[in-house]
Amino acid sequence: MGLKNLGVKLGGLSLRSPVIMVSGIFSYGEVNLDYLDYRKLGAIVTKTVSLNPREGNPQPRIWETPAGMLNSIGLQNPGIRTFVRKNLPSIRRDGVKIIVSIMGQEAGEISRIMELLRREEKIDAVELNLSCPNVNRNEPMVSQSPRMTALFVETARKSCGKMPLIIKLSPSVTDITEIASAAEDAGADVLSLINTVRAISVDVENRRIMEGGLSGSAIKPVGLHAVYEVYRRTKIPLIGMGGITTGRDAVEYMLAGASAVGVGSGFFSNPLLVDDIYHELTGFLQKNGMGKLSEATGLLNEKEKTNGDSRARKGKV
């Protein structure tokens, strides 16, 4: 049992642990949580940063749902310049890789943000958030269109230099493999699957709705399905996330095709979730006699599909 067994490579990004704090649930990495064991963490993804400051959405921003929650934070952030000057230096490192999440209202903003980020040595990778459900609700998200996804990813690819480029996609689409392939073809190194699911709750007393992104156990099957399908249709590594609340959930994501796993709102209820995942994955490797975690990725005993669906995954080993 040791750290090196759980080390993973995501394209050019080496992590000592496959456990990642996903964007939006860990502020900018500056908050010290005494109960979080950093040694078991591979990377943190910052809250999404935009070119200009965003004040975020009005209250209510949080709504509990059966087996999950809606959030509508609205990408509150200080803007990229303040982030680089004030937030970036305060990120706790301790061997944890720093992934900065960014968004742009248009592709041009991505290049301008990259200009400011790509020379920062403290940043190990960039995650392009094309899938926040809480901005411009009247318009589609970028990752709801293969064409727009390709445009944004190409722009990011051109401007990010050697920095590994992760693309975060929304499950709120007809066919996520189509979007994933568009991102891969446009130069994505890694995909993060999935962002929250566009959803609403209805407040009966006030006859109002709460719009937001659904997270929590309720969306785990949606996330697993996305990872499973995209794994068979693309060649790039996947970070699986969505509804992970136990160590076993993380194993499920690995088997479905993830190379690393993201901890989201499940961390709010279970403050020891990072430890739980770490121990469960270590135990899984031991039990199955595996030398390293990457062996578990996509390792399903699959029956031949009998419904005439002959889609085969492209060139996976």
Binding site: F26, V31, R61, I62, W63
Partner: peptide, 16 residues
Amino acid sequence: ENRMACGTGICYGCVT
């Protein structure tokens, strides 16, 4: 007071 998710400053849900 407010509804809270994280309670620890990492999610920005309870702002005022």
